[in-house]
Simulated scan of single mutants.
Amino acid sequence: MKTRCIALLSTFAFAACVHAGEPRTDSYVENERDIAVEQPGPHEGTGTTTAYPFFDDAEGFETIFRKRALHPGASIGAHLNDKDEIYYILSGEGELMLDGETRAVGPGDAILTRDGSRHALYQRGSEDLVIFIVYRKRPATPTPTPTP
């Protein structure tokens, strides 16, 4: 089966793969209230966040599409990226550290962090910093077959 990948950037970033030939019959809708997970700040960040891992269990779907709310005092800790990744700020105020430079970010800002880039994101202000995060899943590492 051939796969054709397309990317669309609108009010948020989204990438999807469309299978040519057979129509898919496993499309569905998820609501954030059903998948919300309270977590500490990722990458050893501070505070509390709420993650909304949309379509994490979708078979054959190669895109991570996540909403995350960084509650007051929360952060995504500084880390070296091992993939290209997009953050899109929906609401709130934040401070982005990207490759040693710091700047304020807010609603409407889209951030591209490349493989090898170092970054962190800090919630600032009194309201949650709410973002979409989009990146391509890494292929599963095959389990080595033992030799007799």
Rank of each mutant, 00 (worst) to 15 (best):
T102M: 09
D56I: 05
C17T: 11
G73Q: 05
E95V: 01
G94F: 06
T11E: 07
D128G: 04
I35H: 04
F54H: 10
A51Y: 08
I133S: 10
D82R: 13
S75G: 01
F65L: 11
L98D: 02
L112I: 14
S126Q: 14
E95G: 06
P142F: 00
I86K: 02
E44K: 10
L90F: 01
I131L: 14
R4T: 10
C17V: 06
P53L: 14
Q39A: 07
V29L: 14
V134C: 15
P142K: 00
A120P: 07
G41F: 04
G106I: 09
F12D: 02
S91G: 11
I6M: 15
K83S: 12
C17L: 01
A15W: 06
A140D: 03
G92S: 08
R68I: 15
D34A: 11
D57G: 07
L8G: 09
D82H: 12
D99W: 10
F12E: 10
P40M: 07
I89F: 06
R103Y: 05
D82Y: 11
P72C: 08
L90S: 08
F12L: 06
S91E: 14
I76P: 00
L8P: 00
A104P: 03
A15H: 13
E59F: 07
G116N: 14
G60T: 13
K137Q: 10
I89Y: 06
